[in-house]
Amino acid sequence: MAARVVTVDRKAVEQLTGVLGIPATLRGLRVTSTHFFRNLWGWIVGRPQVRTVMVPEEHDPKPAAFRGMPVLVAMDNGKERCVACGLCEWACPVDCIHIVPAETDDEVERYPLVFDIDMGRCMYCGLCEEACPEEAIVMSAKVEISAFSRAGLLWHKDQLLTPVKTLERRLEHIRNDYGRR
């Protein structure tokens, strides 16, 4: 079939969708205001009809399989499990992880001096978690990354460290998932 060129009068289309958009907006407003008044009434008589989660102060618990932003597991002594082996850096398909290894006098002689994740790039694929031989980087339930600048999206080691006890469910899940038992 031969190619055909159709000239579209964009102005007319915009006007048309504008006109058509009014009923759609009204429909949407009807839904939200119905909920609003129903809730208001429920609140007045003491029988709430719709459950409300007060985000961001509260969050619904996420299933263990949920992949939020990757974080570093902090052991009970507050230090990272990570030994800066670089496998997550290698596995990362979007190159959002940057590690600078260094040596310490601890029993495990190597640790990450710098561990940065560019959350603006991260696509929550979880390959870093799968590559990690130390269960040191896991996908958390956190999803709120908003910042006022791009630099604010670059999360450093101290921001990424998360106590191990808040990550137990996910760790249990990945042990099953990746057959690490």
Binding site: A84, C85, G86, E89, W90, P101, A102, E103, E109, R110
Partner: peptide
């Protein structure tokens, strides 16, 4: 080269 950079990089 000790703890400097993984060889695969």
């Amino acid at each position: 080269f000790h703890h400097k950079r993984r060889v695969w990089f």
